[in-house]
């Protein structure tokens, strides 16, 4: 493994490594993102939360070069950049785990991990790739019995682990995770949260999408709320959950708080 920390000196402490300004993306009549701002600094974990359809995955895909934004700027390491393809994002050092994982089921674990950046393309170096795959998977304490089986035969959580492991290849400086723990069991979730903390210690910027407020509180330094494709507040991780939920859903008197209130009053009566 190359150590991704090696030239972090290029970015001064606290300055964002990646920042988005005024990013908009429309799908026909649907404005999925409207003038969204987002910053992540080296060694910082930023959680992006929002209701279903708030535009989180669209934001991820803009960062990954899958979608081209209709407006707005992207600044990476103090340089304004355009990311027009996934290859551009890789070249910059933005690695992404997509919500749908985007693995090739007919390829095996090693082939998926190294997809698009095989070693020695004219005569593949399978042995080195396999060894590095084992190193990566062990780093994640992955429970994968063998790397020579097609990904189709892995469980949902194992696939998610493979997708996460893939981001660690190369020299990523920013890692974007779209609901990385959605399919994971309790232990594996803890493992991924540990990994996120290790990535932060190694000086990477991490953007994490999650619906699970507990996970968000556990690792995030800041929480960015998206609502209907717009920024709707930035909180630090200590902010009360009700406040964040209110920003996600749009009012302090909402279905979540009413439910919580009901549960409290029932408990109080008993």
């Amino acid at each position: 493994m190359n150590d991704p920390v090696k030239d972090q000196a290029a970015v001064p402490e606290g300055r964002p490594i990646l920042s988005l300004r005024g990013v908009s993306k429309n799908f026909g009549a649907v404005a999925a993102l409207t003038e969204v701002d987002l910053d992540v600094a080296p060694g910082e974990v930023v959680a992006v939360v929002g209701d279903n359809g708030a535009g989180k995955s669209t934001l991820v895909k803009v960062l990954a070069g899958v979608h081209r934004p209709d407006a707005g700027t992207l600044t990476f390491a103090d340089r304004e950049v355009t990311v027009t393809s996934p290859a551009d994002a890789h070249a910059l050092g933005i690695a992404t785990v997509f919500q749908d994982l985007a693995l090739c089921e007919n390829l095996n674990v090693v082939q998926n991990l190294f997809l698009g950046r095989e070693l020695r393309r004219a005569r593949l170096d399978e042995v080195t790739m396999e060894i590095r795959s084992w190193e990566l998977l062990r780093q994640l304490s992955a429970k994968i019995p063998t790397v020579r089986v097609p990904v189709a035969s892995l469980s949902g959580g194992q696939r998610q682990t493979v997708a996460i492991a893939r981001t660690l290849l190369g020299d990523p400086r920013v890692i974007v995770l779209d609901e990385p723990t959605a399919a994971l069991g309790v232990a594996q979730t803890a493992e991924v949260l540990n990994l996120i903390e290790r990535l932060r210690e190694r000086g990477l910027g991490v953007i994490m999408i999650s619906h699970n407020m507990e996970d968000v509180r556990a690792v995030a330094d800041r929480v960015v709320v998206l609502r209907l494709g717009r920024n709707n507040g930035v909180f630090d991780a200590e902010a009360p959950t009700e406040e964040i939920v209110a920003a996600m859903i749009g009012a302090s008197d909402n279905v979540v708080s009413r439910r919580a209130g009901r549960a409290r009053s029932v408990k109080g009566e008993a």
Binding site: V66, P86, T96, F98, A102, L103, L115
Partner: peptide, 8 residues
């Protein structure tokens, strides 16, 4: 689509 997102 996965191949495209892998940079191919």
């Amino acid at each position: 689509e996965a191949a495209r997102r892998a940079g191919i």
